[in-house]
Design a protein around this nucleic acid. Structure first.
Length: 657
DNA sequence: ATGGTAGTGGGTT
DNA sequence: ACTCAAACCCACTACCAT
């Protein structure tokens, strides 16, 4: 954009943000990024000349291999509507024409028209800053219905050129125009021009187009003569290499601010061509998939295939509100989100077994906490039940956002869960272990993908974003290796605070003890349950342990040596590890009955060949209990040491035998 | 002990 | 008084098998 006073814009944005919680969080993030860059630099410096030349060889070979995959046979067109939301709003209110306008509100704007952009107003900029940059800026609230309507109109046009076109968003699409070019004996540029004209005729909206031999290139091209323009990159290797050579890496989809920064500051990479020159270092510092992506960018390669139908993997919703510590309002918001999510799930006929709670604290720190269930859920009651448990473990906390996500869908849209439960009991009875068989399958599948790494990123901690989406779909193999009915201890609430937190913990002195470590979390769980019912919890494994030690029976491997699946545990102090039924700790008698039920099942099966001593050994294998207890204890943080974790115990003692 | 895998959290786009 | 949704990648950990 010409005529934008960049420095003035930057100063205003800075002045408006400075001192805010948001700004402080941005500074933390930047500090973290600088740390990452320093780590990578150190790693670079450690490389010996021989190692570098080794990696260079690896890179050269990789480049040759990637080159063989170059496909110049397809013609891809990327269409991008110009300032889509703003343009639609101008259509429905022509008085906005020629005036600086933004779609959104004071807190955030989605799109700005070109008049507003001249003032430095941008998408994803908060409205109050935009207004400072351009006091006469007109704000128009978002109206997705309208945008969807116009998006559908454009898609009807796209369909005429490629019935299988790929919609990337409401305002972007990829079309494979190879066939239509051939059939109508037109050049790709002519097709692009005609398509843009038709879109304008049908909608009154302008768009920009890019043509290239793959989607990555087409996308870059559509940006070149924007707005209301187009650019064609011929399907010719030399043309592609020339085009790519001077192209700044930031223009590539999948390379954003952070990646650009890292590549520039660590390796001195500015253009796509530099990717090839520094191929050795890229292979030395990044995982194979990431290095492959970078190298293929250097070669101007991209996806040319129409991807297999990608089913959606999660549904989520989240809401921002003014910061509060009020727990009652948290639960109200949670209930609303659960209701909305449930409606969305049922609209799609889906149910999921992993529920993720997302929180953004007042200081803009984002946390997610997830639980994977044994059964699939989609009702708002179930969602709210588990979401509340997740949230409870985080209290007290001051929040500005809560979100919920359901994932790990049932593949075949059957809502009835039942199956995992059944299998568990069966496994229990036959002393078999379905998970073992499943694991064989999944490991053999993923070994295809994980056969080789240049090296891992342990030290750098660098993680690449969604480049896979526009490069190689190799990881998709992994998706089919999730067996929904796989029987695991999958009810544990995980909590793995990442490096980010570790890093800024020290910077965050007064808050340091509030960080939720896994230890703290599990203790909080246990504690809250204790509060709910501190008197009636039977706690029997101490004596049990002793008993079994004395028994010290010889191995009875004749049936199976597997101990797993045979213990009755109350996972999270709530759920039977054998069949998934939920019984809170206070249901003491019910729990005993439940245990008896499993026991009776087991006895029937075993009676014929086992004496009771053997049975007891199988039911109470000391190692398992002891080791699980040990692990639980290790997780307890020093200050909570006094509390015994109670989310693991037997209902009945061995006296029954 | 060692190595592979699934689940989870967090970052990035 | 700095959004929302969805995908993917990596690090870490617990767990399991050998």
């Amino acid at each position: 954009m010409d005529g934008v006073d960049k420095e003035k814009v930057q100063r205003i944005v800075y002045d408006m943000s400075k001192g805010s919680k948001y700004f402080e969080n941005e500074e933390r993030k930047e500090a973290f990024m600088r740390q990452k860059i320093d780590n990578m630099r150190a790693q670079c410096a450690k490389l010996t000349p021989t190692a570098i030349s080794q990696y260079q060889k690896v890179a050269d070979r990789r480049i040759l291999e990637l080159e063989t995959k170059r496909d110049l046979s397809r013609i891809w067109l990327h269409v991008d509507m110009d300032a889509f939301y703003a343009a639609v709003e101008t259509l429905s209110n022509p008085s906005l024409k020629g005036k600086p306008m933004a779609v959104g509100g004071m807190s955030m704007i989605s799109t700005a028209n070109y008049e507003a952009r001249r003032f430095g107003v941008r998408a994803a900029m908060p409205g109050f800053i935009a207004r400072k940059l351009c006091p006469e800026l007109i704000f128009v609230p978002v109206d997705f219905k309208k945008y969807t309507y116009y998006s559908d109109l454009t898609r009807k046009v796209f369909q005429k050129y490629d019935p299988n076109f790929m919609a990337a968003s409401l305002d972007e699409a990829y079309l494979d125009i190879t066939d239509v070019c051939k059939e109508r004996s037109m050049t790709s540029g002519e097709i692009a021009k005609e398509l843009r004209t038709t879109v304008f005729e049908e909608t009154g909206l302008t768009c920009s187009a890019g043509v290239g031999s793959n989607r990555l290139l087409a996308k870059v091209c559509s940006d070149i003569n924007k707005p209301n323009g187009q650019f064609v990159l011929p399907n010719d290797r030399m043309a592609v290499m020339t085009f790519i050579s001077s192209l700044p890496i930031r223009k590539i989809g999948g390379i954003g601010k952070v990646t650009e920064h890292i590549l520039r500051d660590v390796l001195g990479i500015n253009t796509c061509e530099d990717m090839l020159q520094k191929g050795g270092l890229l292979c030395a510092l990044f995982s194979r998939s990431t290095a492959d992506f970078f190298l293929s960018v250097g070669l101007g390669l991209g996806q040319t295939e129409i991807p297999q139908v990608r089913s959606r993997k999660s549904i989520s919703n989240e809401r921002t509100f003014s910061s509060t510590e009020d727990e009652a309002s948290f639960y109200q918001k949670l209930a609303d989100l659960a209701e909305m999510l449930s409606v969305d799930m049922q609209k799609e006929g889906l149910s999921g077994r992993t529920l993720t709670l997302k929180l953004k604290t007042t200081t803009f720190e984002v946390r997610t906490r997830a639980v994977t269930l044994q059964n699939y859920i989609c009702s708002s009651e179930d969602i709210l039940k588990y979401a509340s448990k997740l949230l409870k473990a985080e209290l007290p906390v001051s929040l500005r956002l809560i979100g919920l996500r359901l994932s790990q869908f049932n593949a075949d849209k059957v809502v009835a869960p039942a199956d995992p439960t059944q299998k568990t009991l069966t496994n229990f009875l036959i002393s078999g272990d379905a998970s073992r068989e499943s694991m064989v399958d999944s490991s053999s599948m993923s070994s295809i993908v994980n056969d080789h790494h240049f090296m891992n990123d342990t030290e750098t901690g660098f993680s690449m974003g969604s480049h896979e989406a526009c490069s190689y779909g190799g990881r998709d193999l992994l998706d089919s290796s999730h067996f929904p009915d796989l029987e695991d201890n999958n009810c544990a609430i995980g909590n793995n605070d990442g490096e980010m937190q570790k890093f800024h913990e020290p910077l965050n002195g007064e808050n340091g003890n509030k960080v939720n470590t896994p230890e703290r979390k599990s203790c909080q769980n246990a504690l809250s349950e204790l509060k709910a019912d501190s008197s009636s919890v039977p706690f029997a494994f101490r004596s049990l342990d002793e008993e079994n030690k004395k028994a010290n029976l010889p191995d009875d491997d004749t049936v199976s040596s597997s101990n797993q699946g045979e213990l009755l545990l109350w996972v999270n102090d709530y759920k039977c590890s054998l069949c998934g039924i939920e019984l809170p700790p206070c249901f003491v008698e019910e729990r005993q009955e439940h245990f008896d039920f499993h026991l009776a099942e087991r006895l029937q099966k075993e009676e014929s060949r086992c004496d009771t001593r053997m049975l007891r050994h199988r039911l109470f294998p000391e190692d398992n209990i002891a080791s699980q207890r040990k692990r639980k204890k290790q997780r307890a943080s020093p200050k909570d040491k006094g509390h015994i974790p109670i989310d693991l115990f037997f209902v009945k003692s061995s006296q029954n035998f």
